Simulated assay, not measured.
Amino acid sequence: MLETKSAKDLWAVKTAASIMERTPELYEENGHHGKWSYDYGVVLKGFERLWQVTGDEQYAQYIQHNMDYFIQDNGSIRGYRIQEHNIDHLNNGKLMFGLYDRTGKTKYKLAAGLLREQLLSHPRTSEGAFWHKQVYPYQIWLDGLYMGTPFYLEYLLRWEPEEDLLNDVTKQFILCVQHTRDDATGLLYHAWDEQRVQPWSHSVTGQSPNFWGRSIGWFAMALVDVLELLPAHHPDYPKLVEIFTDTMTALSTYQDTASGVWYQVVNEGERKGNYLEASASSMIVYAMAKGIRLGWLPKEWESVLNHAYAGLISEFVLETSQGWVNLYKNCQVAGLGGDARRDGSYAYYISEPIITNDQKGMGAFLLACTEYEYLLHAKV
């Protein structure tokens, strides 16, 4: 258990302060305004959780300041094009609910409605799973479950409360696992191609060839966020809990014994070039802590979690002389489309740039710290 600390000494608080001071505008990139990007939503969900547990208005203001650059008074979204049918573009929509509740401004509800509208025409596999993007046809990526399903579910529960539609959310997980799970390890492959035509796609299974840490992290976060919202009486609720416990059990098998965290390619810890990766490890810690708190994982998991959380701090975090939190060893990006190099091979995943303070990593780390320090241990 944690020792009792003052709020300013908690990693969640120090991380949030570092982000606000270093990047007051998340969308500023080298002096230019950035595009509508899912990264902001990962960071700002961390701020939203921290605001909810502390009541500190500066966190809510930071969310609003960053989203207001994009959300126009009529509910349109700067830089967003619905016809792209990119599931990533839904992630920031999760912030619209809290902004609407806090301010009462209609523009946030309208923006959420615009993003919801995308799913009405978003292309799907023959079984009804959303494609990752229109430019990546017939493909399910684990990443997309985090980007789309928690937003979709919360929108439905608030503004389209039809039980049948909730089945469309749970179906996304069930189909994804059906097509990406490896029976030997229990781990999930990064992606699946229904058509078996992508260079990375196995000719029989359609699966990509490796277990990328962050993609499984995205999936685990998506599951706990959806389970937190999904009515417990829903017929698929037990199935999603089973998928979650199965996935976390598989991940625990590949937890690095010495450090407590996870590798970029999860099951290849001994292989040359592999490295312990911050964003995936943070996502797994967040999902595990939330799973314990909400009762989907038994209390015995706390020892696994404590080892992992200590590993996050010791392996990836360094404070600067001015007290800013730096998060090291983040894979910058890893996808399975766009050029021949992105072939899903082991060599590809370990060749992508490794950077410090990546927004996806910082957001996931903030979520993990908030869940662990405030919500699971309730120390402040």
Rank of each mutant, 00 (worst) to 15 (best):
A258N: 13
S259N: 13
G260S: 06
G260C: 13
V261F: 07
V261A: 02
V261S: 03
W262D: 04
W262L: 05
V265E: 03
V265P: 02
V265L: 01
V265F: 01
V265K: 00
V266K: 03
N267T: 01
G269Q: 08
G269V: 03
G269S: 04
G269F: 02
E270L: 08
E270C: 06
K272E: 11
Y275L: 01
E277A: 03
A278M: 11
A278W: 14
S279E: 08
S279H: 05
S279L: 05
S282E: 12
S282H: 05
S282F: 02
M283Y: 01
M283H: 04
M283A: 14
V285P: 03
Y286L: 07
Y286K: 01
K290S: 14
G291A: 06
R293V: 11
R293M: 14
R293W: 12
R293S: 15
G295F: 14
W296Q: 15
L297V: 06
K299R: 13
K299T: 15
K299E: 09
K299F: 07
E300T: 12
E300R: 06
W301A: 08
E302I: 13
E302K: 14
L305N: 07
L305V: 01
H307Y: 07
H307D: 05
H307F: 12
A310Y: 10
A310L: 09
G311E: 12
G311N: 14
L312C: 12
L312Y: 11
I313W: 10
I313G: 15
S314P: 11
S314Q: 08
S314M: 08
S314I: 11
F316V: 12
F316E: 15
V317W: 13
E319L: 01
T320Q: 03
S321H: 05
Q322S: 12
Q322N: 10
W324G: 06
W324Q: 14
V325H: 00
L327E: 15
L327M: 10
Y328I: 07
C331Q: 05
C331G: 10
Q332C: 04
Q332E: 09
Q332K: 06
Q332H: 07
V333R: 04
V333M: 00
V333F: 04
A334C: 01
A334W: 07
L336F: 02
G338F: 05
G338M: 11
A340R: 15
A340V: 15
R341Y: 07
R341K: 14
D343W: 14
D343L: 08
D343C: 08
D343P: 02
D343F: 15
S345T: 06
Y346R: 04
A347V: 05
A347C: 04
